[in-house]
Nucleic acid binder design. Structure first.
Length: 929
RNA sequence: GCCUAGGUGGUGGAACUGGUAGACACGCAGGACUUAAAAUCCUGUUCGCCCUAAAGCGAGUGCGGGUUCGAUUCCCGCCCUAGGUACCA
């Protein structure tokens, strides 16, 4: 019998489904192992061969872990809220739930084709009310919590209320808005309910605040910073403007330090850790207050600096043009100039501002601040190199130590004062921390560390500053003016947001007549009829952002059907955290940061046990498209003819390159018949061939329909089978590396599986396995692969395993091995990679069908690999000259003698005196002359 | 600019802690089987020189240096590619 992949694969996929082979229990004697994939957004286009790359790797790993005796949780689901379904709904009027359902069905079919070992009984969909009920529930927990810096964790809001009731705001160390009130316990008691609520909102981890948001009028929505690229929306490329708006936000900044600390205990790729570190952007420095007499007594401008030691070099304060004090500070004489400058910067788009980094601009306000240490006047300027959103939106300019300040000062003729004897100011600033300070009053002669200490102490003692830590990361906006997302479980009593009752969850997404903003500019939910809480109060009309559901979904898999909790305590305490998470690096600062934040919060509230949710993380590379081109010959007027010239001859003609469907090209050779059917206008195409073939050109591009380079896994599976697809995707190269998909080469993997199949069959094609004892060489081939695959999988080097399987099967074929003892173990070792063919052969070997998934991975026995001899490469002066087989237990002196007296070696020595012989046992002999 | 990863045959890639560079596979060339094709199998395939052949010689892992008996691997400088980031005080 030949290897018929289609029949075998369908048979086993059905078997696994019918027998619930991959159903996994939350109780087990085995150690647990949780393998998670980043779940997909089910788009209308379906899967292409790039999508399953990570899933195949995680499936191999899961199947391997099962064979190694672990209880493996390996679930899959859908991140099914999202823009494309809504965009489609806007265009067609079809409810996004319907398109989403259809897309999920298609995804499921495609996934099932590949033979994954997911426990589908745990499937989650973020858009399903039984799931988003708990997303809303977590939101409510966040609303009902504050961050206590004293205990360094989030606490229920009741503990804050208790503190206010007994101590007022005194002694509180909390993360909050800037405008909190100071009050006593008695004053708190005297506050109205509304006043109290207003104050509490300044502390809640989910809170409302007026934020400047990226408003995209064309999309009718607010975008996150990472959705705005170069001033236009990532999706669609529409213009984005800054707009003030009441927005739900998440106080992720409360967790900045813990998010940073956690990076040290997790096993993630360095670039990803680095990206998160930069995103959080911690700077240690000081805040310094510069008094501003014109604003009134005791009024000041606060700046943040990482170089407080340079404070005596300050020649100006520079504010962001958007700074709130600019208008007040501008004197009548400077008014025209300042206003002109502000108009000019406002006009500049984000893009211009970035392109213009080197152009210095700014304006003098006419006012002066007072240097807190010298008492001297410091002019106050505005300039757009100072960003309103970072620090305090104001900087102290130190031209000798900061290049931007230097350029600014040179441009506007401000004095440049050197502050260190080590500074070299030849046309640029010198930020050195070496040397001793000069022109710096109380720190003259001190070193950097001494100076910082002395200055912070001094500033603190006069109330003009303190040591401060600043983060680049901002609180995350948690709202979208869109329809297809989780409703926020909040209604309004006047201006004040109130939570609905827990037993009223889920707050279902209401029906609307259109998926567009209302005429008055309200989000689509404003269109819902009679959508009021208890018939009276307005619901929140924005929905949650895309990252809400994905910030906790891995817990739902642990107990996906639980109606009473997001997951039971027992399930969570058994599975705890994700042992291996595989996904793309594009989620580095979005999903992976928000998930860590929610996880820490859930831990603070006692719902989950681990500080970090994803112990180990692997980024799979992107699979790019590999486009093929044909070259249409142009006539003298530059018009296209119906003649196409092969790649190698195209330079002899005037041609234009056209994309051609990669599915009608094989090894860059065009299928002429299929090409004529490809487009009606190609029906009578003629070809100029080379060597009888039409060779196509190629280029690496994004995989997309318009480039005709999309390869559907279903087509590959139809032709070669899922086992071939799985192994070929791995064979393509290291998992982490991005690479173009190229179907060339898949034949090699397909041939391998047929060769493997043939080991179990005789020349007539009948199943024929021998019970004889294997030879030494056969044992050796087996145990080499047992060890190799184990090592490779543990370091996620799947491509090298595939090569080793090929070597092993080549060896066994050469040995004509059909011994049961060898082939049965080989089935187990290969099973994670090629589950269908191995299940089939396993059953043919007489094992109970379907038991292979839970077989025991064979133990490696080093005795089979022990060698008594080794063929040493003999090199002279580092250049390999020949090989010499010597016993492995031969020691240096004997080796030297054998080698040096060898006739062939003598030739290379040319009679020169031997200086030294390097001998590394089992490796090499190097003669130095 | 900064951060990170990477540059190896015609192609994808291998070489794990400094020890035979190019495993494995594709492609290509030649051959066997076949009426023929497909499938299968065998041989060769880094480049250059020499040669009927056998054998031999030289160069070679982006470029230039260094350490070492020995470097794709470690160090210094540079070039290029991809991803991230954008005046962060």
């Amino acid at each position: 019998m030949d290897y018929h992949h289609r029949a075998i694969e369908q048979k086993w996929q059905k078997f696994w489904a019918d027998n619930h082979t991959f159903r996994v229990a939350n109780i087990s004697d085995k150690p647990k192992y949780y393998v998670l994939d980043m779940f997909p957004y089910p788009s209308g286009a379906g899967l292409h061969v790039g999508h399953p790359l990570g899933y195949i790797a995680s499936d191999i790993f899961s199947r391997y872990k099962r064979l190694k005796g672990f209880n493996v949780l390996h679930p899959m689901g859908y991140d099914s809220f999202g823009l494309p379904a809504e965009q489609y709904a806007i265009q067609t009027g079809q409810h996004p739930a319907i398109t989403t359902e259809a897309n999920i069905k298609r995804y499921r079919e495609q996934l099932d084709n590949i033979g994954f070992s997911f426990d589908w009984e745990r499937e989650v969909r973020t858009s399903d009310p039984s799931f988003y009920k708990w997303t809303q529930w977590i939101f409510m927990q966040l609303f009902n919590a504050w961050y206590n810096k004293a205990t360094d964790k989030a606490e229920p809001i009741v503990t804050l209320i208790a503190h206010f009731a007994s101590h007022g705001s005194h002694g509180l160390n909390a993360v909050s808005d800037d405008d909190t009130l100071a009050f006593t316990a008695t004053e708190w008691a005297s506050f109205s309910e509304a006043q109290q609520q207003r104050e509490l909102l300044k502390y809640r981890l989910a809170y409302l605040r007026e934020s400047t948001v990226n408003w995209c009028a064309a999309l009718g929505t607010v975008l996150a910073n990472d959705e705005v690229i170069n001033g236009v929306s990532e999706r669609g490329g529409y213009p984005v403007e800054q707009k003030k708006m009441m927005q739900w936000s998440m106080r992720i900044t409360a967790y900045a330090e813990r998010l940073l600390r956690g990076l040290e205990i997790i096993d993630w790729p360095d670039p990803l850790v680095e990206m998160q570190r930069n995103w959080i952007g911690k700077s240690v420095g000081a805040s310094v207050r510069f008094g501003v007499p014109v604003l009134g007594d005791g009024q000041y401008i606060e700046v943040f600096t990482t170089r407080v030691d340079t404070i005596y070099g300050v020649n100006a304060l520079v504010l962001a043009p958007e700074h709130e004090l600019v208008e007040t500070l501008t004197t009548a004489a400077q008014k025209a100039q300042v206003e002109a400058y502000i108009t000019q910067t406002k006009k500049k788009s984000e893009l211009d501002r970035m392109a213009d980094v080197k152009a210095v601009s700014g304006a003098f306000t006419g006012s002066y601040a007072v240097h807190p240490l010298t008492g001297k006047d410091v002019p106050i300027w505005i300039a757009d190199y100072v960003l309103a959103g970072y620090g305090t939106g104001a900087v102290m300019a130190v031209p000798s130590g900061d290049q931007r300040d230097y350029l600014f000062s040179v441009h506007f003729g401000l004095p440049i004062i050197p502050i260190s004897d080590a500074q070299q100011l030849d046309g640029q600033a010198d930020p050195t921390k070496e040397g001793r300070y000069i022109n710096s009053d109380i720190i003259n002669g001190l070193t950097y560390h001494e100076a910082v200490q002395a200055l912070v102490a001094k500033l603190e003692s006069i109330g003009a500053g303190k040591a401060t830590i600043n983060y680049r990361m901002r609180d995350a906006i948690f709202g979208r003016q869109r329809y297809w997302g989780e409703p926020v479980p909040v209604y309004f009593r006047g201006e004040l947001p109130q939570l609905i009752e827990v037993d009223e969850l889920p707050l279902l997404l209401p029906e609307v007549d259109k998926y567009l903003p209302t005429e008055t500019g309200e989000p689509p939910l404003g269109r819902a009829k009679d959508w009021k809480y208890r018939g009276t109060f307005e619901f929140e009309l924005s929905t949650m952002p895309g990252w809400a559901g994905s910030s906790w979904y891995w817990y739902r898999y642990m107990d996906a059907l639980n109606a009473g909790e997001f997951a039971s305590k027992e399930a969570i305490s058994y599975w705890r955290d994700v042992d291996l998470y595989i996904g793309g690096s594009e989620h580095a600062t979005g999903h992976l940061l928000y998930s860590r934040f929610w996880n820490k919060f859930l831990k603070d509230m006692g719902y989950v046990p681990e500080e970090e949710p994803f112990k180990k993380l692997i980024n799979q590379g992107m699979i790019q498209g590999r486009s093929n081109f044909v070259y249409r010959v142009l006539d003298e007027q530059g018009r296209g003819t119906n003649t196409f010239v092969s790649y190698g001859l195209k330079d002899q003609y005037h041609t234009v390159a056209l994309h051609v469907d990669v599915n009608i090209v094989s090894n860059d050779v065009l299928d002429l018949e299929k090409f004529r059917e490809f487009r009606p206008d190609f029906a009578d195409a003629e070809f100029i061939l080379e060597n009888g073939k039409y060779i196509c050109g190629h280029e690496v591009e994004k995989m997309s329909k318009s480039k005709y380079n999309v390869v559907n896994p279903d087509d590959i599976i139809e032709q070669y089978g899922a086992d071939t697809l799985r192994m070929y995707e791995m064979f393509l190269g290291p998992l982490e590396q991005s690479k173009p998909w190229n179907t060339n080469g898949i034949e090699g993997v397909y041939k391998f599986l047929r060769k493997f199949w043939k080991l179990f069959h005789n020349a007539e094609g009948d199943f024929a396995v021998s019970d004889e004892a294997p030879s030494k060489a056969e044992w050796k081939a087996l145990h080499k692969i047992i060890r190799k695959v184990e090592e490779d999988i543990e370091r996620f080097s799947f491509n090298t395993s595939v090569s080793s399987f090929m070597i092993c099967v080549n060896e066994l074929t050469d040995l004509k091995c059909n011994k049961r003892a060898i082939l049965q173990d080989l089935c187990i070792v290969l099973h994670p990679y090629a589950p269908h063919i191995t299940e089939e052969l396993w059953a043919m070997l007489g094992n109970a069908p379907g038991t292979l998934s839970y077989a025991t991975y064979p133990a490696f026995n080093p005795e089979y690999l022990v060698e008594s001899e080794f063929s040493y490469p003999i090199s002279v002066n580092g250049k390999t000259r020949m090989n010499l087989t010597l016993p492995l237990d031969m020691e240096q002196l004997d080796v030297e003698q054998t080698v040096l007296t060898n006739e062939d070696i003598q030739r290379y020595l040319e009679g020169k005196p031997v200086k030294k012989v390097i001998f590394v046992k089992g490796r090499i002999v190097n003669v130095v002359v």
